[in-house]
Lab assay of single mutants.
Amino acid sequence: DENEERIRAFALYKGIDPEKARELWERGEINKDDEEKAWREYK
Rank of each mutant, 00 (worst) to 15 (best):
D1F: 11
D1R: 12
D1G: 12
D1Y: 13
D1P: 11
E2Y: 14
E2P: 13
E2V: 12
E2G: 09
E2D: 13
N3K: 15
N3F: 15
E4G: 07
E4N: 09
E4F: 08
E4S: 08
E4K: 05
E5R: 07
E5P: 03
R6E: 02
R6L: 11
R6A: 04
I7V: 05
I7E: 01
I7Q: 01
R8I: 14
R8F: 14
A9E: 02
A9G: 01
A9Q: 05
F10L: 15
F10I: 15
A11G: 03
L12H: 14
L12F: 11
L12R: 11
Y13M: 07
K14A: 14
K14C: 15
K14Y: 15
K14I: 13
G15I: 01
G15P: 00
I16S: 00
I16G: 00
I16K: 00
I16E: 00
D17L: 11
D17R: 06
D17E: 11
E19C: 15
E19D: 13
K20M: 13
K20Y: 14
K20W: 11
A21N: 00
A21E: 00
A21K: 00
A21D: 00
R22P: 00
R22F: 06
E23D: 10
E23L: 13
E23P: 00
W25S: 02
W25V: 04
W25T: 00
W25K: 03
E26M: 12
E26W: 09
E26N: 10
E26Q: 11
R27V: 04
G28W: 01
E29Y: 07
E29N: 06
E29P: 01
I30T: 03
I30S: 01
N31C: 14
N31Q: 09
N31D: 14
N31W: 06
K32Y: 08
K32P: 14
K32H: 09
D33K: 07
D33F: 10
D33R: 06
D33V: 09
D34L: 05
E35K: 09
E35V: 15
E36P: 00
E36K: 05
E36V: 06
E36T: 05
K37R: 14
K37Y: 06
K37P: 02
A38N: 02
A38P: 01
W39C: 06
W39F: 06
R40S: 10
E41F: 11
E41G: 04
E41K: 11
E41N: 09
E41I: 09
K43Q: 12
K43A: 09
K43N: 13
K43H: 13
